[in-house]
Structures are given as C-alpha cells and as structure tokens.
Amino acid sequence: MRYAGIVVAGGAASRLSGVDKPALSVGGKPLLARAIHALDGAERVVAVGPRRPGFDVVWTREPVPGTGPVAALAAGLVFVPDDVELVAVLAADLPGVRRSTVDKLVAAVGDADGAVLVDADGARQWLLGAWRVAAVKSALPERVENASLRRVLGGLRITEVAAERGESDDIDTPEDLERHR
C-alpha cells in the first residue's frame, strides 16, 4: 500500500532544557534520522519543524510554531500527494522506531481509519501511527493550534498494534536519553 510520512520534529523539549531533541544521537544516529529512515517506503516524507540540513524531505512549519502536534499534522498534510491514501505519522524522538514498525502499522489499517502502536501499559502512542488521509483531514478541528491529538484522532476507528519491546520508547527526559545511549 502506498503511503506518505509525516515526522513531527518541532516541540519545545521542556523536560530536556529545550535541547533540539531530533538532533540528539542514539547509537550514533540522530533521532530525526531514525524517524526518516523508518519511512523509507513512503512516497514522500514531510518533516514539520525547524529545517535541519542533510535530510532529503519536504520541510514545513505550523503557521504558529510550537502550537502542538495537531497543528504540525495539519501543516504536514498539505504536502501529502492527493493520490496517496495513507499517512504514517511519527514523532522525531523515537529511538526504537524502524521501517518494520511503519510497515506493520500501514498493513494494520485495513478497513479502519488508522492504526496506532500501543505500548506495554496499553497506552496508545498517538505519534506512532498510520492513518487514512481523508479520515484525519475530516477529524481536524477548525482551530488546530494547541488541540489535543488524542481527542482529534481518538474518535476515529482505530486498529491497535502491540509494540515490541522498546519500539514505542521516546526521549523526554535526560534519564530516557541515558537509557538509550
């Protein structure tokens, strides 16, 4: 199945003293590179956040930078080709994301509106999913700034996909980073 990819690469990283999380290196590779490489099968990859050199992606920003993942998702959707039915959406702080993660999410959408990775505690990882573009566009609120991604996507028909160990981990704190170095 053909799909595009959106990497949410903005964020304030407030719990990491405002460092550029996507540029942090885990296992010798920047987190942003890990997310982009996980989307190797995508027709187009759109990164939403400050432009960073060295990546062959379409760059864009939210109209008001820093207004959250729904605003970032809406900004990225503008660049998804019209003939592509699915979009994989990833955060840029996922040390365990792989192409196989994206492949299984895309395959799991089936007749649903989307598929989302679920961690070991049963929590849906909203920035680790694959979605029908039309369903996401119709679910977006009129005002996307500071909207809750869980509320926007949570009303859609969702297939849950169990995460493998470490696959849904993200880097939010210095302790998270140390654990994955």
Rank of each mutant, 00 (worst) to 15 (best):
G5F: 03
I6M: 07
A9M: 15
G11T: 04
A12L: 11
S14F: 11
R15M: 15
R15L: 14
S17H: 15
G18I: 08
G18M: 10
V19H: 10
V19Y: 07
P22C: 14
P22L: 09
A23H: 09
L24G: 08
G27W: 05
K29W: 05
A33H: 14
I36V: 15
I36S: 11
I36K: 07
I36P: 00
G41T: 02
P50I: 13
G54V: 01
G54Y: 00
F55K: 06
V57Q: 03
V58W: 10
V58Q: 14
P63W: 02
G66H: 06
T67D: 00
G68C: 07
P69D: 10
P69L: 04
A72D: 05
L73V: 10
A75Q: 05
V80I: 07
P81D: 06
V87E: 00
L90A: 13
A91E: 05
D93W: 03
D93T: 11
G96L: 03
S100F: 11
S100N: 04
V102E: 03
V102S: 04
A107K: 12
V109I: 13
G114I: 02
G114F: 08
L117D: 01
L117H: 01
V118I: 06
G122C: 00
Q125N: 12
W126C: 12
L127P: 14
L128R: 01
W131M: 08
V136I: 07
K137E: 13
S138E: 04
R143M: 14
R143N: 14
V144K: 10
N146Y: 04
S148L: 01
S148A: 07
S148R: 03
R151H: 15
V152I: 03
G154R: 06
G155D: 03
T159N: 14
A163Q: 03
R165H: 13
R165L: 14
G166I: 08
D170M: 14
D176H: 12
D176E: 09
E178R: 05
E178K: 07
E178Y: 02
R179G: 08
R179T: 13
